[in-house]
Structures are given as structure tokens and as C-alpha cells.
Design a binder for these strands. Sequence first.
DNA 1: CATATTTTTTAGTCTAGACTAAAAAATATG
DNA 2: CATATTTTTTAGTCTAGACTAAAAAATATG
Lengths: 218, 218
Amino acid sequence: MYSLAEENYIKAIFHLQQQKKGAVSTNAIADSMETKASSATDMVQKLADKKVLSYVKYKGAQLTQEGRKTATTIIRKHRLWEVFLVDKLKFHWDEVHEIAEQLEHIHSTELIKRLDNFLGNPAFDPHGDPIPDEHGNFIKTEKKLLSQLKKTQFGVCVGVKESSPEYLQYLDKKKISIGTKINVLGKEFFDGSMVIEVGRDQFFISKKIAENLYVQTQ
Amino acid sequence: MYSLAEENYIKAIFHLQQQKKGAVSTNAIADSMETKASSATDMVQKLADKKVLSYVKYKGAQLTQEGRKTATTIIRKHRLWEVFLVDKLKFHWDEVHEIAEQLEHIHSTELIKRLDNFLGNPAFDPHGDPIPDEHGNFIKTEKKLLSQLKKTQFGVCVGVKESSPEYLQYLDKKKISIGTKINVLGKEFFDGSMVIEVGRDQFFISKKIAENLYVQTQ
DNA sequence: CATATTTTTTAGTCTAGACTAAAAAATATG
DNA sequence: CATATTTTTTAGTCTAGACTAAAAAATATG
């Protein structure tokens, strides 16, 4: 069982490792934790003693298997709670981060097992990020424009490139929002138009629509 | 905003004050917090500086209005989360305390407002204890034997006096468990028998049944 | 009611996790 | 490649909240 501070460092280091491969510097950790480099060094040394990460002086830190397991468990909890807050308590997806930052530290494997079930074992959080399974396996995702998908592929809406009221209202009308799953049923080479499926609806969209919507894919 | 330790002390002092009126001793606080008297004295002095409680050396501590408000908010959160764990996640009522001890410290008034709504604004937790409203008002309850209730009164089952398998199986058959609301529809003076309502069922019970069931009343 | 006993507080430490300032190592540059 | 600059670590403090041991106050008792 790790302390609150330890858990937050482990999570931050995991996210930094995702961004660029290799060891992460204590300075980068300090920046992301909004603390001083000396504090980060202290903590990294402590976590190295606990075998959560390997650390070479002046070279940086890298999570061990144990560290990655801990990190993904925290991320799993964070994202499941976000689904709860949005799906069940009807929070808007941009209001939930701070609360989930607290909830992710609740310790109880049984709780998370039951919460996951209660929510219908969701694969993505309300921001479109994948929820790791209980073994820490992520669905590998990549952010693309909807227009880059091919026929039969699918993506989860994670944002827009253009944000004019007209465009957002169009998306709203078509019930497309962050987290919405979009299946590409057909694609026309001639003009880049697509037939997509959203929920139970199937409809036609122009290239212009498709190239302004970001989706996350497996 | 109070620290985790501060919140736990405030809650403990509130519960001690419920038990017997007047100031609570630092020793009593230390016992209930499973810490040493010197630690309790330190914390009580700190909380007195913060106007959470009044403290007279060697005499003990008493929560202020502010302290009581903080305590009831924590208790409200604890009990609402217990309802969530039992009603929604299907935990058994005796498994939820430890998890609720953690969840009660999540800070977000909006969260609690929405959770309360999501749960249908429950008045009691799964143990039959009343959930204070957002102003900290409790429904005043008292633990009685079901046999002590009069016609038209009601109580929430909080425990049994006798716990033989036969009795528990009878209760189970009649769908009476901790947290079950029981309305007294009629009572016979001659033999102390009653007609009660449990959920949508109405049925007759003998005096012997009624005097072995504890209920909490308003 | 003086003294013994119990309760409570005070004084002094310890640890986790933050900080500042200085030292040391790594990297960049003429 | 020697030196200047940047990055990173070390040494020394600080605070919250725990602890032990001793002191002080309150209470019990002959």
C-alpha cells in the first residue's frame, strides 16, 4: 500500500514515460508534480528502495513491472470513476477530473470490480481515453481525424479541430459528443464522404465534417 | 478545508459528544482515535485555534457550530456512500464501513448533491442510521424494540435481540433485514400481537417476534 | 485535608514530504 | 578540450502528526 504522495508520483512518472520512451528525469517529474527538483529526487530515491522504479543518479527513473501495475491500477480507478460521474451522476465530462483525482486513491479491489460491473465494463472514459483492464492492459489508441479512418474501422470522439457554433450544433444534432463511438460503414474515394453509425443511427457525412473531428482508435 | 487527520478527529469528537453531553476529554478522544493522549491534546489545541472547538485545559473539548457543521457533513457523506455501496454496488451492509471511511473524505459539495439525488434522497443508511440533510439536521432517532411501537408508528430495523437461526430465517422469509422499514398497522392489547407492513406486504406477528427486533424511530 | 493515584499536558523526538541553498555532475560552447 | 552553463543531487530546515517520558493538575482516599 502506497501513500497518497507516492501514488501521485507513480502515476506522473507513468504518464511521462508514455510521452517519450526511456528514463524520465527528476526535473520532468518535479515539473509535472508542481514541486521542486529536490523533492522529486527524494521521492524517486524512496521509490527505488521500494522497487517501484529503477533509478540511476543523474540519469532518471523508470518504473518496474510493479510500478507499472500500480500506475495502471490508479489510472483504471480514475477513469472508471469518471465514467460513473458522467454516466450516473450526470456531470459534464469537463467537470470530473478534480473529483476523480481524489476518488482514484480509494483502496478496495472489490469496490473497483463492482464499480466496473455496475458501469457495464466500459472500455473508454468520458474523454475517450481507454480504461486499462484489471491486469493493466490498455487498448492501444491513437488520435486521428475521423477522415483518416477506413471503412469498417471505428473511433471514439475525443475532440474537434474546428469549434464554430455551427459545427458544434451539427454534432449536437447528430448526438456526437466526447466519448461517442463512431463506426465507419462506408467511404467514398471520389469526395471523401462517409456513411457512419452513431448509436443506432446511420447517416451520411461530408469530408468537411469528417476532417474536423478527432477520434481515438485502437 | 481540513486535513484527513483533522476531519477524523472532528468526526470522533462529534460521536463522543452524542454519547454523553458535556465536554469530551482528550483521553476519550485518544481512545476512540486509537492514538496516545498527548497526540489528542496536540490536535485539540490546534482545532481550538481554528475555532472548530472550544477547549479548556484539563476540562476537555466541545465542538463549535462550525465544528458540528463539519462533522455532520462528513457523516452525511459517509452514510450516503454506504447507501451507494449497498443499493447500487450490491455490497452487503456489513462490508461497507471501511470503504465509506475513505469515501467520506472526498471533497466536492456538487458530488454529494448529485449522489444524494441519484440515490433518491435516502433518509437512512444501510445500518438504519439517519442521514443528516445538507444543513446538518438529523432526524432524531431512538433505538427501541418493535414491540414498544404503537399503532401507526414506524421504525427501521437496526438489529435483533435474539439471533437463533430459526428467528433469523423467519425474518429472512418475511424480507426483514437491517434497514427495512416497518409500519405498525395494528396492535392487540390482549396478547401484544401486531399487524405490520413490510414493503408491500402486510402480515400478522406475535409478541415474541416483536420483542426481539430492534428498530430505530424518529 | 494531606497524600496517593489518576488524568492530562508539556517537552523533546521521529518520519514523511515539502523547501532553500550549495555542491556536484553532466552537457554545451568557444 | 577547457570552461561556462545547466541539470541534478546533497545537506540542512520546516511542518503535520505521531510517539515517549516527565511534569503538572485534578481527583480519590485514608
